[in-house]
Computed example of a mutant assay.
Amino acid sequence: MKERHDPSSSGGIDRWPLGTADPFATSAAAGGGRRRVRHLRRPTVTFAVGWSRGELRPPDPPRGLRQALQCLPYAYRILREGEYGSLVSTGSAIAVPFMLAARSLGIECHYVESAARSDGPSLTGKIVSRIPGVRLYSQYERWAEGPWGYGGSVFDGFGLDETPAIRERSVGRVVVTFGTMRGYPYRRAVNAVHRLLPEFTTADADVLWQVGDTPVDGLPITSSNLVPARELRQAIDDADLVIAHAGVGSSLQFLDAGHCPVLLPRSVKHREHIDDHQWLIANELHARNLAVSRDADALTVDDIRLALSRRVLHSTATPFALRSDLIDARPGQVDVAAPVTTWSDREQTARRRNS
């Protein structure tokens, strides 16, 4: 039986509602960004938080910086009313207005670049790095230099189960999910998986398809543009195999459930995304043996069998550390030897305040 890690059992956002005595909030995009925050274990301000209050717009397309900046007044009000002492973002456009507002209020800010950025900071990261006083963190030591510190990666908490699983069997439960992003269909991947399904599934296999904006006309499959989050999570937990595009948030969900997923990264060449950052994610997980990554057109049944032969376990990782000194200097003047505060330290402090 697969064991599923429950982030709420170890300080996840569900146990840290906004406005509590813990003066520490996070900002992220809804969905994948929120799952990344769960692995960093903090309460969260997302597009979805304001949306539920009728304040912020629904999530915008990738790099919706102009739309994100329209949230600046709401970010200022949320942070001021919450009386927060610190703010963390895991890398999304919503970080810009929240960190501008936070620094104007004198709130300590930490920007953790997305695990998708293995070769350097994102556009958001470059913008945030110009905001005075924001501490910057890379999840990849190879480019952590200058103002960018290194505190570890969300992927460090996973390892490969050395006990081999059965590779040659046919499976009865498969989840195929290519996200819900509007305007970017991924028919190449749908075609590739459909073509191979008979070679590794039973005749009565239950296959859940979440295809987003991808048309599936002409294919004998039953699919959904959007599967409710709880239903999708349960299907992933119960599945024998997961095949997906290479989003950070969805990949973390698969690893949490013990899967070694088959990742088919979207390609800007085929107009499947705005850039090739999914290849950076997929290549990183493939190098760690936590996923099998292939171009959709090159997918084979051997790739499927390889993923089925692996299981992922939770491993012990060094707690992500934040510099606790308040830096008001210009970007680049970061004292890398400054004292650090770990998540567990902050959780203990918050619990003492609430007791």
Rank of each mutant, 00 (worst) to 15 (best):
G91K: 00
G91T: 04
G91F: 02
S92W: 00
A93T: 03
I94V: 07
I94S: 04
I94R: 02
A95Q: 02
A95L: 03
V96T: 05
F98I: 01
L100V: 04
R103F: 03
R103V: 03
G106R: 03
I107E: 10
E108R: 10
H110D: 13
Y111D: 09
V112N: 11
V112F: 12
E113T: 14
E113S: 14
E113A: 14
S114E: 07
A115I: 00
A116N: 02
S118Y: 00
D119L: 11
P121R: 01
S122P: 06
L123Y: 01
L123E: 07
G125F: 06
K126N: 08
K126T: 08
V128C: 11
V128D: 11
S129A: 15
S129F: 01
R130A: 15
R130T: 14
R130H: 13
G133R: 01
G133M: 05
V134W: 01
V134K: 02
V134T: 08
V134H: 03
Y137C: 13
Y137R: 09
S138V: 01
Q139W: 01
Y140K: 05
Y140E: 06
E141I: 03
R142K: 14
R142I: 12
R142Q: 15
W143K: 07
A144F: 04
P147V: 05
P147G: 08
W148M: 05
G149R: 15
Y150Q: 04
Y150D: 10
G151V: 04
G152W: 06
F155T: 05
F155Q: 04
D156Y: 01
D156Q: 02
G157M: 03
F158L: 12
F158S: 11
L160H: 10
E162W: 04
E162P: 15
E162A: 15
T163I: 14
A165K: 12
I166H: 14
E168S: 13
V171M: 10
G172I: 08
G172L: 04
G172Q: 06
R173L: 08
V174W: 09
V175L: 09
T180C: 11
G183N: 00
R187H: 10
V190Q: 15
N191F: 11
A192E: 14
R195S: 15
L196V: 10
L196C: 09
L197Q: 12
L197D: 09
L197I: 07
P198Q: 05
E199C: 11
T201R: 02
T202Q: 04
T202Y: 01
A203P: 01
D204K: 01
A205H: 10
A205Q: 09
D206N: 10
V207S: 06
V207R: 06
Q210W: 05
V211P: 14
D213A: 14
T214W: 05
P215R: 00
V216C: 15
G218Y: 08
P220Q: 08
P220R: 06
I221W: 09
T222A: 12
S224E: 08
N225G: 13
N225C: 09
N225Y: 06
L226D: 11
L226H: 11
P228C: 13
A229G: 11
R230D: 15
R230W: 04
R230P: 07
E231F: 06
L232R: 06
R233T: 13
Q234G: 07
Q234M: 06
Q234S: 07
